[in-house]
Design a protein around this nucleic acid. Structure first.
Lengths: 219, 219
DNA sequence: CAGTCATGTGACTAGTCAGTCACATCACCA
DNA sequence: TGGTGATGTGACTGACTAGTCACATGACTG
């Protein structure tokens, strides 16, 4: 937890610190993210940093908290469909929103991605918990899908949850290559290509495969 | 490319260097992998290292080469089924072999995994090529599956290849949690739990989902 | 005004790192 | 034996790191 001093700061300054910190941890892994570089960019003294945070780790976990909060808030939009209205419809919506989030907050996404798949000094600690909770959610979704009669009840739900999760996290990478988005332009905030109807087409295609598999339908 | 001096070394010494280097790059990302630590462990002088390799990057790319070579060699076993005898049978075999490889060479797998999903200083360079070539292979497989009449010809093969690839690379993580394998024991070379028939059961379950999807079959 | 307390500061410690270089050692050959 | 070229060496450079601390500034209060 950041020290009280940090929360007493003028909002402007606090936001500036977070902005630079997010940039630093998005562009570098935990080890390589540099406090010296951050304070230099912020134009504040090294000592000040240590009045805001216990240490580097303290800042890092605070950022992870923010990332998860942002993501949850982003997902809780009024347009959210009800899972009871259709499992695969809901899954497609999840896919699309996850993608939109990654485009809207590429740096936050990067930090989360690093925490999930990277291997910093705290890989087992609480970061594993994020992954576990994501998987638990997918599993819960699937269980509901089974009870709605949409999901094959003979499936191993743990395996299915893993696959669903793998596909969803991989989806961003797919879209980026597919739409041939210029990563640099993305970083600079130009998301115009997102409006392309291809996004919906693609998520529909993915869900179709998830739903019916690769096999040629008999006939 | 390593300098000629490296290849002139006695095989014993060369292997010792590679062993320590693999350990170092498996346990740390590129930035954190330390040449100073390596030469200390090897009991050789820092200068000697720079007579074997141009620089850190040179060593790293040499290791990546080795990893890919090892993996290819591992996959080209006499037991390899013919893709023409059945797409999904072949896919299941691929899944199982990939897993066995990761168990047999956990450190090499770790290095490859880092190269694919990490974000070192050379992420765009040639490492992207590895991923691209893996994807190209999956895509080729799928195209053959279509021509064999096993794969739904209306699918977008690029999307399908991505999903297949995501599932395959995620599979190792799934198995490790599923079989509740002790990672430490694995590192020490105890692979006894691999004999479990669960391995085949699980890969079959995964392929079943890939083949027919999650949806409850009508009826 | 003096006192107190939160906040800001940057030089400093003790450690890390990749990479260099003048020198030493060794093997081999004339 | 002396010479030559490959190989080995480790102290050294310059640059970086996280974190500390004695001190400075500012604001608010009695």
């Amino acid at each position: 937890m950041p020290k009280p001093t940090f929360f007493n700061l003028a909002e402007e300054k606090r936001k500036a610190i977070l902005e630079i910190a997010i940039k630093e941890f998005a562009e570098n892994d935990y080890q390589s993210a540099s406090i010296s570089r951050m304070v230099a960019r912020l134009g504040i003294a090294k000592g000040s940093f240590y009045q805001y945070f216990e240490d580097k780790r303290d800042l890092y976990f605070h950022l992870l908290d923010l990332v998860m909060q942002e993501r949850l808030a982003f997902m809780q939009q009024p347009s959210t469909p009800d899972l009871h209205e259709g499992f695969f419809q809901y899954a497609q919506w999840l896919l699309e929103m996850g993608l939109r989030y990654d485009f809207a907050h590429p740096r936050l996404g990067q930090i989360l991605y690093r925490a999930l798949f990277g291997s910093g000094p705290f890989h087992d600690e609480s970061l594993g918990q994020i992954k576990t909770s994501l998987l638990a959610y997918q599993r819960q979704m699937l269980a509901l899908g089974v009870s709605l009669g949409e999901i094959d009840p003979t499936l191993d739900l743990e395996v299915a949850a893993h696959l669903l999760n793998a596909i969803m996290t991989d989806f961003s990478g797919l879209i980026v290559t597919r739409l041939q988005l210029d990563t640099e332009r993305l970083k600079q905030g130009d998301y115009s290509q997102l409006d392309s109807p291809k996004l919906r087409e693609l998520s529909a295609e993915v869900i179709k495969i998830v739903q019916y598999g690769l096999a040629k339908r008999s006939g």
